[in-house]
C-alpha cells in the first residue's frame, strides 16, 4: 500500500490552552488513489488537521507524515494545498499568480490552469483585488488542481461558490487528480460531495469518531453519509 498521508497519535493544542486539545491522538492512514472527505462540525479539528499536513502548524505531540516525510519544503513540493480562505497576495493580477505557481512548483501545468480559468471566465489581466470571494476561490482551486501533486489538501473548496460552479469544481477535482495521488477535502456541504468521495472521516472534538469507505458506511448504517452526518452531529433536541 502506497501511504500518502499518515497521522500517528497526532495531537495539537495551542500555547496556554493545554487542556483544550484541537486534535487529540488522531491516527489515520490515507493511501494513494483515494478521495477522502474530512467531515465534522465547526471546531472539530478539520482545518487544523489539514494545516498540520500542509506544514503550517507544528504538532504538539505525535506525528504527521506526507509520503513518509515530516512536513517541510520537500513535502510541500508534493502537496497541493487549498486553504479555507483566499490567500494569494491581493495586489497581483491573475497572470502574476500563474507566474508564482510556474516559478515555485515544478509540477504546475500552466496550460491546464489557463484552460480552467477560461472555463471559469477569469482573465489573465484580472486584478485579484477586484475579484469576489467566490471568484478568488475558483482561481485558487484552478491553480491548485493544475498541479500533479501526490497529496491534495482542499479545505472547504466549495464553501464560497455558487451551486452552478460547484458541479464544475467537483468535476475539475475528479478530472485532475491522478490515481497515484490522494485527495483530502473538508466540507460541510456533504450532500454535494458525497458522490465523489471514496472514504469519509468523521471528526468530533479533535477525535476520529467514525471512519470508513463511503459505500461501507452507507451499507452499514442504511443511510447516506449526509444523513449519517446529521445523525452523528445533531444538536441538542432540548434547545
Amino acid at each position: 500500500m502506497n501511504e500518502i498521508l499518515a497521522c500517528r497519535g497526532l495531537t495539537k493544542y495551542y500555547d496556554g490552552m493545554r487542556e483544550k486539545h484541537v486534535l487529540d491522538g488522531v491516527d489515520i492512514s490515507i493511501p494513494a488513489g483515494r478521495i477522502v472527505g474530512l467531515l465534522g462540525p465547526n471546531g472539530s479539528g478539520k482545518t487544523t488537521l489539514i494545516k498540520l499536513a500542509a506544514g503550517l502548524l507544528a504538532p504538539s505531540d505525535g506525528a504527521v507524515l506526507v509520503c513518509g516525510m515530516v512536513p517541510g519544503p520537500a513535502t510541500r513540493a508534493l502537496t497541493a494545498y487549498l486553504p479555507d480562505k483566499p490567500v494569494l497576495p491581493r495586489n497581483l493580477r491573475v497572470r502574476d499568480a500563474l507566474e508564482l505557481y510556474r516559478d515555485f512548483f515544478a509540477d504546475f501545468h500552466e496550460e491546464k490552469a489557463t484552460a480552467m480559468l477560461a472555463d471559469l471566465s477569469i482573465n489573465p489581466t484580472d486584478k485579484l483585488s477586484a475579484m469576489s470571494k467566490g471568484t478568488l476561490e475558483k482561481l485558487h482551486l484552478a491553480l491548485t488542481m493544475s498541479r500533479s501533486a501526490k497529496l491534495y489538501l482542499l479545505d472547504e473548496p466549495i464553501g464560497g461558490v455558487d451551486p452552478a460552479a460547484r458541479d464544475y469544481i467537483l468535476s475539475t477535482i475528479i478530472r485532475n487528480y491522478a490515481e497515484d495521488a490522494a485527495l483530502v477535502l473538508s466540507t460541510h456541504l456533504i450532500g454535494d460531495i458525497e458522490n465523489v468521495l471514496d472514504d469519509a472521516l468523521f471528526l468530533q472534538n479533535g477525535r476520529v469518531v467514525l471512519a470508513g469507505s463511503v459505500d461501507a458506511l452507507r451499507e452499514e448504517h442504511g443511510k447516506s453519509v449526509d444523513a449519517l452526518f446529521r445523525e452523528v452531529f445533531q444538536c441538542s433536541a432540548n434547545y
Binding site: A54, P89, F105
Partner: peptide
C-alpha cells in the same frame, strides 16, 4: 499571518 498560508506552502525553507 494570512499571507503565510501561501508563502509557507511553497517548497522553500
Amino acid at each position: 499571518g494570512d499571507d503565510g498560508y501561501f508563502w509557507f506552502s511553497l517548497p522553500v525553507t
